[in-house]
């Protein structure tokens, strides 16, 4: 920190020192952020590779490469089934919400009708309610549709938080599409569905990937609904299943297996984000400039 009352003279050596200091500060911050966000996951990996009493010794570097936790999680019990359930639910949620959101976004951005703004606000306000507040009502709905203890109950209830933002993001994107593009397609003889499918959709990919991935993550991580609407081990999704993992006796918490399971469920998300990261950045910025 330089004294503000006396402005520094243009001194080359001092400037170089300041620049070096700034670079150092920048990288120190980067290291801190990376440590802060990656360390918990790193520690989970570390723990998952240990067993027995080694679990309870604090160490920051890998000491053993014991995959027995992974073997037991993936072979014993219903965990593989739970994993499949999670994949099924998340994929279905993403597919259905993207389909509904794209069609809704077309109407909300391209068709003039009375109460359009009000409808948009209503959709947004749905995401205002905390999950716990709507839990009881949703439970009644799930029972009424006869979906209790089935994956359908989760797919239905997850729409509550995925649809508002997918609809909003895609509406914003579609509003920015030039009107002449749509009109050119109309003159070419395209129906509204063909306009969405063949003209807008290919241009919406970055937005679709971004919102789809966020919806996937939400559905993948959701805990409360999964705990409430599903009761049997075979229909559980991963977050609840991990919480329910138990050792040979009631007193023992199988930390190694829990950590192995956690690593297994995190891996797909990490891979997906890495694969789509360029599209995600494009998607996050493209809509933000206008509208």
């Amino acid at each position: 920190m330089s004294d503000r009352s006396t402005p520094p003279r243009p001194n080359l050596a001092m400037r170089r020192a300041t620049r070096a200091l700034k670079t150092l500060g920048f990288w120190a911050l980067v290291v801190f952020v990376v440590l802060f966000s990656v360390f918990p996951f790193y520690y989970a990996i570390l723990t998952s590779l240990e067993s027995g009493s080694a679990l309870f010794e604090v160490n920051y570097l890998p000491t053993s490469l014991d995959v027995s936790n992974y073997v037991s999680v993936l072979t014993k019990g219903p965990f593989p089934l739970n994993f499949l359930n999670s994949v099924l639910v998340a994929v279905a949620v993403v597919a259905i919400s993207l389909f509904l959101a794209v069609t809704a976004a077309f109407a909300l951005s391209r068709v003039r009708f009375r109460g359009r703004g009000l409808l948009l606000l209503t959709i947004l306000s749905v995401s205002m309610f905390p999950q716990i507040a709507v839990l009881a009502g949703l439970f009644e709905m799930v029972r009424a549709f006869d979906l209790y203890n089935s994956l359908g109950s989760l797919i239905l209830s997850y729409m509550i938080f995925t649809l508002p933002f997918t609809v909003w993001v895609l509406t914003t994107f579609m509003r920015d599409m030039p009107a002449e593009l749509e009109e050119a397609a109309i003159v070419d003889g395209a129906t509204p569905f063909q306009i969405v499918w063949k003209v807008f959709l290919p241009l919406l990919w970055p937005a679709m990937v971004t919102t789809g991935l966020l919806a996937f993550i939400q559905a993948w991580n959701e805990f409360l609904f999964a705990l409430t609407f599903v009761a049997s081990n075979e229909t559980r999704t991963v977050p609840v299943a991990i919480a329910m993992l138990s050792g040979s006796s009631g007193q023992e918490v199988p930390w190694g297996e829990i950590m192995a399971a956690s690593v297994v469920v995190t891996a797909p998300l990490v891979v997906m984000v890495l694969v789509f990261q360029r599209k995600i950045v494009a998607g996050l910025t493209a809509g933000g400039v206008k509208g």
Partner: peptide, 8 residues
């Protein structure tokens, strides 16, 4: 169209 409106 004025802006060409080609499908990008």
């Amino acid at each position: 169209f004025q802006s060409y409106a080609l499908y990008p």
